[in-house]
Design a protein around this nucleic acid. Structure first.
Lengths: 239, 239
DNA sequence: ATCAGGTTTTGACTTATGTCATTGTACCCT
DNA sequence: AGGGTACAATGACATAAGTCAAAACCTGAT
């Protein structure tokens, strides 16, 4: 019993319903816990993994904030996502058994480590878990479709409005304020994710501020008029 | 035995190694076949599925060519991918049990239908199949990361060069000529996928033509200088 | 508290790509 | 075979976003 307690992670986790074990029964979570490794701390600025690292485990963000960065040979980098509590890291590595991007902590963070071969075995005997995981992979595909839409078809203002609303919604989902947020990433990071330069991001934030949609003080952002901001996500209001 | 033959699809399929059953044993493929529905024809221009359709099955492209399109409320559309022989369609629908984009045949095509609930059950008893499928989902995530890089960080010329080389490689992988290809999609489709307008795509093709990289006659494209074209994928050659 | 480094803001100017319009081409249908 | 509708190419011009540069601002380390 004590052994169980030592290894137990998800069973007593406050964000269990935001994470991989969402929807599983207590018994199932218990079983999952027996295959989890302990929590691992990742200080701000550290890499959780890098391109080319062999793939052994998935990671679930337990606390903190990450970015994933795709590096191009000629030095350019593209941020492919920002991950917060409950979200999985490393899904891109399953295909080739090697990580295909860098994962960097943007603040002091912690992750739960999920050895993938054990996880796959567990999926064989736990249909619920396998189903959840298929859905998580599919959700990531949907998210990326939406980013493609954003990058391929939207103007800068729409991109930023989408980004901010998405961020606010994810905060809300985690019972954090969706009105006042402190951004964990630089303007350059936001720009990379949105396919814009940092100067453009800065100007847009100033514009939203001037128009009374936001209050912006450095990385502190307060959403003053969510409806108006939400409208900026589409081209409709230009017509 | 005859019953088996009737239902058999993958077992005798010429593109088996390009598709879901790649790497499975004959026995395993045989088992998979028992859960496949028959091939379904999709004439050019028809929808295989539309946004909002309930999700029942995945599809494997057996022959032909598809595009998947994400529609935005304000009428804009973003093409999220082009699928050829052996590639899976419908992965985005697992998350919400509803299709999240339209899938349109760009030429007369055929698909194999894979009822997803049966497929998941089969995955429970066939670790190899489940593993293959996890990899397929992960590969789709990697592909989309690359598109994000393309849309977020590359100039128009680089985008088109990447697109053409990727298309050529996928043809080669299917033992089709990677030198002479006929594009299945319009300039507008290419533009949508690459985040460009059709006029830009047209101009770029003309430019590549003038520079001796390609021979372009309508939708017929012949790659004359693959190396030079490959160089255009990065910014390096501008330095 | 102070200083140094990395951010952020803002301005003036450039440029890649989009927009609009015209003509040309090809393919599909009867 | 022909005629109509889609698609494609090209030119002239407009503009959103990028570039370069300077100044202001934070933040964390000494």
């Amino acid at each position: 019993m004590n052994l169980h307690d030592l290894k137990s992670v998800c069973g007593s986790c406050t964000i269990r319903e935001l994470c991989l074990p969402a929807g599983l029964s207590d018994d199932e979570v218990h079983l999952l816990d027996q295959h989890m490794e302990h929590r691992q701390v990742v200080p701000k600025g550290d890499y959780l993994y890098r391109v080319g690292d062999p793939f052994r485990s998935l990671f679930a963000v337990s606390s903190g904030f990450f970015k994933t960065v795709l590096l191009h040979e000629d030095g350019r980098g593209q941020i492919t996502g920002f991950q917060m509590m409950g979200e999985l890291l490393g899904l891109e590595a399953i295909h080739s058994d090697h990580h295909m991007c860098d994962a960097v902590a943007l603040e002091d963070s912690a992750v739960c480590t999920i050895p993938f071969d054990q996880f796959e075995q567990l999926g064989q005997v736990m249909a619920n878990l396998q189903h959840r995981f298929n859905k998580d992979l599919s959700r990531e595909i949907v998210r990326e479709h939406n980013v493609m839409m954003l990058l391929g078809s939207m103007r800068s203002e729409e991109r930023l409005a989408n980004f901010l609303i998405d961020l606010a919604d994810r905060h809300a989902h985690r019972h954090q304020s969706s009105v006042e947020m402190t951004l964990r990433m630089t303007r350059e990071d936001i720009g990379s994710y949105l396919g814009l330069k940092l100067e453009t991001v800065s100007r847009l934030l100033s514009r939203f501020h001037d128009e009374g949609l936001l209050e912006v003080r450095g990385r502190r952002v307060k959403i003053l008029d969510r409806n108006a901001l939400a409208l900026r996500r589409t081209e409709a209001h230009h017509q």
